[in-house]
Nucleic acid binder design. Structure first.
Lengths: 97, 97
DNA sequence: TGCAAATATAACTAAAAAGTGATAAGGTGC
DNA sequence: GCACCTTATCACTTTTTAGTTATATTTGCA
């Protein structure tokens, strides 16, 4: 593993949309960043900055940044707040695989 | 609201599979028990007791019971362990609408 | 009813997340 | 370069979850 070994999600976002090799390796990465990726996509899809989202969640920008950094795996309570703030509906499922 | 006002998930499981009125009212309940319901369904679908599941998660039966009680909203890390233990794949999504 | 398996709850410590303020770093346009 | 907006990180306290032991309660069945 060479390219897809980001130290932070900032690195990840750099490579992501551009490099196909990066994208392939990304699929094999740990789950750690998947949640963060989901957050970023949901927030940007809602057209919000971190500060705007934070206010809607009753939190601060620094907390949203941490959520999106992938260094923490939040609780379902936070997922629910996030969903409410982005006008989406949280879905958690355990799919047969 | 009369019937669908359980104090615990134990009450809930009583009514659930039998009473159609209960089922209707259940849909209107808060999110509080949704996660617990999801846990119970995934575990029973896997044909496991709480103790068996707990062992696969590297935890104790009492912890699984607490998860299924709905009094706590666990972290995504716990959801991942749960998925691994039930042989399922965790899906978390923020759906539009 | 009585036994055994399964589930629920309580009480406690350890670990992790929630939450905050300050500040650094990145990018954009002037 | 310099503002300005946005995102990232650090350091810290508070709150919640993780994890355990012990025990009570429930459930199914002989």
């Amino acid at each position: 593993m060479t390219k897809a070994n980001p130290q932070s999600l900032a690195d990840l976002r750099q490579g992501w949309a551009k490099d196909p090799e990066f994208q392939r390796e990304f699929a094999a990465l740990e789950d750690e960043f998947v949640m963060a990726q989901t957050f970023i996509q949901a927030r940007t899809a809602a057209g919000l900055t971190q500060a705007q989202l934070a206010e809607r969640m009753g939190a601060k920008q620094s907390y949203v940044a941490r959520l999106e950094s992938g260094r923490m795996l939040p609780s379902v309570r936070t997922l629910q707040k996030f969903a409410a703030a982005t006008g989406t509906k949280l879905r958690v499922a355990f799919d047969a695989g």
